[in-house]
Design a protein around this nucleic acid. Structure first.
Lengths: 358, 358
DNA sequence: GCTGGCACTCTCATCTATCGAGTGCTAATT
DNA sequence: AATTAGCACTCGATAGATGAGAGTGCCAGC
């Protein structure tokens, strides 16, 4: 059943009002605020119908109306005005985001913080890495019992490890190891590092007291560790400002849930989302703990098979329009920045700049 | 003025009781629980004197007594029994701590989490790096416009950077750069990288389109970035379980403060502490926000000039004895682990194990 | 110096009365 | 048929009022 234009207007007004004040909204207020020139009695009739249709509900008989999840859903899908970021807002995001390229996890921490600060809700930032390959493999001789392993990965990240040995090796051995590894470990994925590969490499080098196996182990370690997703939560304290979390138990419940990285990963793994921003309202969330909260997620692309998600968690009464706009903008900027400046810029050869989108 | 033995016993009883239940404690309870065989009336007289001396206070006439900061201080300094960790407790810590050597920031996140979980208070973990030097400097040629810079630092950490160039260089140039840098940038500190050093290096290599300056810039960047302290907060949600933070505003206030890394750094920079554990009670904290909370800090030593602090934040009514014991144990274990396994172990050449201390 | 006894104080929980926002319904109006 | 004014009704929130209970301070007696 299609609901009338006027009902939609009324619903939108209720949602807007409730988002702003967190208090059940009554017919009189709507009559004044929404641009419809009808009396509160008329509004009451409409409200009654919207309630019957499941878009609104009453906390108790003589209180105003509050949107249901279904109501929010309709609002998000059709009713809400797409918030246009003001110059100040974009400027502020740009200013914060204009960070130099840095360690991935550090970056995520920053991005999470920015999202939290901009939206005033707790925010999460995740990054997931597509399976890696080794693009290049070098071994640097330091001294008789020390060398450094350096691996350049498919995603242009570089991993390294310093190794002390309980015995000595001479420089030529390291040299040889380096050459052989560079030849045989180029382009390999995690699965391709098999006992077979290892023993063939071993034969190529000649015996080296198990060094080959050990170094191969390191390669395996890098590849497997870069597979995992990582994530952070920022601005958790912001929950406590919201009237719906004045109850410390509720707040604690949710916070506890959110402070587990694994849960964050679940959250942002919500299938593939087509559009740029995804909104999960109340009961649409799978996790019990989020049943009366909403989540807004935006995807970003970091190039080289790196996928990331930033998101915000708040009460169902969330300012979807603004939040969505901001997240989407941050995600976009991030994608551009990471794609463009992926390779760490060497100072003097151009710094990462986030282009102004206006 | 020296207070009597009996008063001390009574004070200790009050503190213990208050720590356990967060409720003002009355004379009757003390008369029963503390091993003194006197009536509640006697206790009342003593309590009155302790109150006059400033060790206790009453929320209002006719409530029980609550320790003041001064009372806690005496308790911590003289009265409290040093908590002995049980087998289960040490076992649990060991189990959690038995993590493989990993990225420093990842490690701190883990340690913070462990401290928070073990004590049930929000915990912080910090690490501060003493000024670094460059021990070795290599440049690896990848292809005509790509190379990797690898620097081995004084603390045995290795930093690297992948560089794409907008123009080509041939392998021999890189080779030469590597040799020259390895010679002239060995052992340098941040301050020693001066324009003079850079231009002398430039002369040694011959002109290379500004590459020398750029690479030197990278060196500078590494050294300066490793100087900063970093820290994390874990288990912030645990605050909300405590009766003193049932007021969401209070909780919010403190949490907000704690979620700023800069504040954490301040906190753990509390001068040099001689003993292994330092306790800051209520108003002894400099930060306004911590005036009615307490902080327990333990220092650990990560070898190679790395200093770290782990700490716990809670109400003044904190279980100092247990918390101090646990933190101290964690810090100790951490020191041992990091000193021993500092160099990343290569799989197969011995893994980091935290020795059992029992 | 210790103790039992007692009057006093102050908080907290419970209860009641009242207020007011907002509803639903009906009857009148357009 | 839709809109509106009017009105009785509901129900949460707020403010006092009341009583119970915990704990104190002090005094007189041992």
């Amino acid at each position: 059943m299609e609901i009338s234009e006027r009902k939609k207007k009324i619903l939108a007004a209720v949602v807007d009002e409730y988002i702003a004040n967190a208090e059940p909204v009554g017919s009189k207020l709507i009559a004044e605020k929404a641009g419809l020139h009808v009396s509160s009695a008329t509004i009451r009739n409409e409200l009654a119908e919207l309630t019957a249709l499941g878009y609104l509900e009453q906390p108790h008989t003589s209180a105003g109306r509050v949107p249901t999840a279904q109501g929010y859903r309709l609002y998000v899908n059709e009713l809400m005005e797409r918030h246009k970021l003001s110059m100040e807002e974009t400027a502020e995001i740009n200013r914060s985001l204009n960070v130099k390229v840095q360690q991935l996890d550090k970056l995520m921490q920053d991005v999470g913080r920015i999202a939290a600060d901009m939206t005033n809700y707790p925010a999460l930032a995740m990054a997931a890495q597509a399976p890696e390959t080794i693009r290049r493999f070098d071994i640097i001789y330091v001294d008789a019992n020390t060398f450094i392993i350096v691996a350049l990965l498919g995603s242009s990240k570089v991993k390294n490890k310093l190794v002390h040995l309980p015995f000595s090796v001479d420089q030529s051995t390291i040299q040889k190891l380096s050459t052989v590894f560079n030849a045989s470990f180029t382009g390999v994925t995690e699965e391709q590092i098999t006992p077979v590969l290892i023993s063939s490499t071993e034969r190529a080098v000649g015996d080296t007291m198990g060094l080959v196996a050990a170094i191969a182990g390191f390669a395996l370690e890098i590849l497997s560790e870069s597979r995992g997703a990582q994530g952070v939560l920022a601005g958790g304290a912001k929950l406590l400002q919201l009237p719906e979390f004045r109850d410390p138990d509720k707040a604690h419940h949710l916070m506890d849930y959110l402070s587990d990285t694994a849960h964050l990963a679940d959250l942002s793994a919500v299938g593939s989302f087509g559009s740029d921003v995804k909104v999960l309202i109340g009961p649409e969330n799978v996790a019990e703990e989020l049943r009366d909260s909403s989540v807004v997620l935006a995807k970003y692309d970091a190039g080289d098979g790196m996928q990331g998600v930033i998101g915000v968690v708040g009460p169902t009464r969330m300012d979807y329009s603004t939040v969505a706009a901001k997240l989407s903008y941050i995600a976009d900027s991030l994608s551009k920045a990471l794609a463009g400046g992926k390779t760490d810029a060497l100072p003097g050869f151009g710094k990462l700049m986030i282009k102004d989108q206006n």
